[in-house]
């Protein structure tokens, strides 16, 4: 009886200790494992199971391998109205900072094949502009910030393997979509002159080049 009693007591202590640790862990994280899993699944319904993107009515961007700092900044920008997007300003609602960070970390670790699909004939021109810029039109080399492999760093996004029509749309619409809160200017302003100076055919070429980058 004594042995059974002490074994039961030990199990009881272990159970309480483990469950307490679980509760404290969840509270520290700022989300529960279940709700994070559900939220990530929700993201993948549009952005693809591997975060590879999807061509819906509008091109839905690839998230796989995206820079976490950039990712988190965009989620905040959508909700704060600094970045305009009729779908994302709603979809990104109600996320805690910890959840945003966890989602960003999840997608940054995913791998997907580059989307490609752009006209191959544009790639050479796009590569030249990406690597050398275009001094005639005051366009700096994209590579200088986005990196020679177009994987970005910190707050500068990865572009490699992105949907070409997504890149095209964002560059063409930059001033209409980013930095939309004049009271809170953000880092997206750094792309204003470049996106303005690039011609549409140059944008098409860059987008084509990037879509094939691994």
């Amino acid at each position: 009886m004594k042995v059974i009693g002490s074994r039961l007591a030990l199990q009881a202590i272990l159970a309480i200790a483990l469950s307490a640790a679980g509760r404290a862990d969840g509270a520290d994280r700022g989300y529960s494992r279940g709700s994070l899993h559900a939220k990530i699944e929700y993201c993948t319904l549009c952005h693809g199971l591997s975060g590879q993107g999807y061509r819906g009515f509008v091109p839905i961007p690839r998230l796989a391998g995206q820079q976490p700092e950039y990712f988190e900044n965009q989620l905040r920008a959508f909700v704060e109205g600094r970045r305009q997007n009729r779908y994302m300003s709603n979809a990104a609602r109600g996320l805690s900072a910890a959840t945003r960070a966890a989602i960003a970390e999840h997608f940054s670790g995913l791998h997907a094949r580059p989307w490609g699909g752009a006209p191959r004939g544009l790639v050479a021109t796009g590569k030249r502009i990406y690597q050398d810029g275009d001094p005639e039109t005051n366009v700096p080399a994209c590579m200088a910030c986005h990196g020679p492999d177009a994987k970005g760093q910190d707050a500068i996004p990865r572009l490699a393997g992105q949907l070409p029509d997504y890149i095209f749309n964002k560059l063409v619409n930059w001033s209409r979509e980013r930095g939309q809160d004049p009271a809170n200017p953000d880092v997206s302003a750094v792309m204003l002159p470049t996106s303005h100076n690039l011609t549409r055919s140059q944008i098409s070429a860059i987008a084509a080049y990037l879509s094939y980058q691994p």
């Binding site: 779908y87 709603n90 609602r93």
Partner: peptide, 16 residues
């Protein structure tokens, strides 16, 4: 618009 609270996607993203 979908419903982010119930993790329901907006059909319009793909179906227009």
């Amino acid at each position: 618009d979908g419903d982010p609270d119930s993790n329901t996607v907006a059909c319009s993203v793909c179906h227009g």
